[in-house]
Amino acid sequence: MRAPNSHVRVALVTTLIAGAALTGSTAAAGIARAEAHPEGVTSAAGAPADFHPDASPLLKIAQRLPKVRADQVLKLAESQVGVSENHRGGGTPYHHWYMNTPRAKETLARDGGATVREYGNAAWCDMFVSWVGDRLGIRPTMGWDAYTVSHADWFKSNKRWGTQPTPGAVVFFGWNGGKDLHNIDHVGFVIKDNGDGTIKTVEGNTGGGKVEIRTRPTAEVVGYGYPVYAT
């Protein structure tokens, strides 16, 4: 959701739900190689506000990661449909995973908070997206965060931000309309463009706190982040 502290969530890396895909040495080694070479990442201000496929520094990082296609990402995300939170608004594997990553401490320091345990009952739509990228070994080119606004800004700064609802794109919604990143309230994955002003998506923390497949009007979309996928 919108306020940083409302995007705090957890999920034990060892807790995999059905269909969890690439784990182990291949994904871990690829991430380690990529994250050991930070020259491939930038957060330069004033990056273009649309997709620039040949300019993104994430392309360099992608060369050192597992080759993952958009359909593989969607298969994993859709395999989680039906996973739900507990009555306190937490307790998903995505919460547990996030709280046990170094990223949780980084975002806690950035957004404010006393302990990573605060992520345990926070809004988890972006933790779900981040979990999918981590499970498939491509978090350096998908990004990982608990705050949707910061995650969208990361895509934009890395020149992987645009307006086309392509399959596998990370879609950022703003219920009040507008294209300002600070209007963002929610995030998920695009399954397909329905061609009628709507898109089919798979999202976490929707429908009363579940992973669900939804149909959304494109009028509610602030923009799309494009992870680097194999073709």
Rank of each mutant, 00 (worst) to 15 (best):
G195L: 09
P165C: 07
H186G: 04
R110E: 15
A123F: 01
G177I: 10
G178E: 14
H182P: 00
H151W: 07
G178V: 11
G112R: 13
K192V: 00
W131T: 08
Y94V: 01
G174Q: 08
P102D: 15
G137M: 04
D153E: 13
K179E: 11
D193Y: 11
Y119M: 13
K159V: 06
D134P: 06
D134Y: 07
H151Y: 00
H151R: 13
V171A: 13
H151I: 01
F173I: 02
T201E: 08
H186I: 06
M127S: 12
V116N: 09
E118V: 01
T107A: 07
M142I: 10
G188M: 02
G195N: 11
E118Q: 14
T107C: 00
G133L: 06
W161F: 14
T148R: 02
W97L: 12
E106M: 11
G188R: 08
G195C: 11
L181A: 12
C125D: 05
F189D: 03
I191H: 05
D180C: 00
Y119T: 05
L108A: 09
R110F: 08
D126L: 09
H151K: 07
D185H: 15
A123K: 05
H96G: 12
V190A: 04
M142D: 03
P165V: 11
V132L: 11
G188P: 01
G112H: 12
Y147M: 01
V132P: 05
T148S: 09
L181E: 07
R117A: 14
A104S: 14
I138F: 02
G197Q: 12
R135N: 10
G178S: 12
L181P: 00
G143M: 10
P167R: 15
Y94K: 10
V129K: 07
K159A: 12
R103W: 03
Y147K: 03
G113F: 02
V187F: 03
A123I: 04
V149Q: 06
A109G: 03
R117E: 13
G113Q: 14
I184D: 03
H96W: 10
T148V: 13
H96E: 14
V116C: 08
K192H: 01
Y147C: 06
G178Y: 14
I191F: 01
Y98Q: 04
G120H: 08
S150F: 01
T107G: 00
A123E: 09
F189G: 04
I138V: 15
W131D: 09
V132M: 09
V190G: 05
K159Y: 11
V116I: 15
T107E: 13
H182I: 06
E118G: 03
G112L: 10
D111Q: 07
G162A: 14
L108G: 06
T115M: 08
V170K: 11
A114E: 14
T198A: 14
D145T: 01
V170S: 07
R117N: 12
A122G: 15
G195R: 11
F189Y: 15
M99W: 00
G197I: 08
R160V: 08
M127C: 13
W97T: 00
N194K: 12
N100C: 03
I199N: 07
T198F: 05
W161H: 06
K105C: 02
H186R: 05
H96C: 01
A114Y: 05
T166N: 04
W154K: 08
